[in-house]
Amino acid sequence: MKHILKIMGLLAAISAIWIGLLETSVVPRSYTWLLPIYLIVTLGCYGLLMVGVGLMFFPTCPQEAVLLQQDIAEAREFLIGKAIDVGSD
């Protein structure tokens, strides 16, 4: 099944529940009308939160850059010994 259909299915299910709520009016109607807006706002907040958290805890590795420089130096030494062109800085 194409993924878009899954998402449509999910949306359809949510709409069905919503219409059900409207029809049966278990909760006051005025609340039910607002629910989709809440849903969209929640989704937006979730997205922003995830991006924010991701940024805050973005894994960085400055020590890796240092290690890489060492590896490059080591490789250079070997390659120059084999007369391979590694360019000049």
Partner: peptide, 14 residues
Amino acid sequence: GVHGWNLMRKLTSR
């Protein structure tokens, strides 16, 4: 982890 990205690059990636 990643090294050498500026804030913009991190933001787009996230």
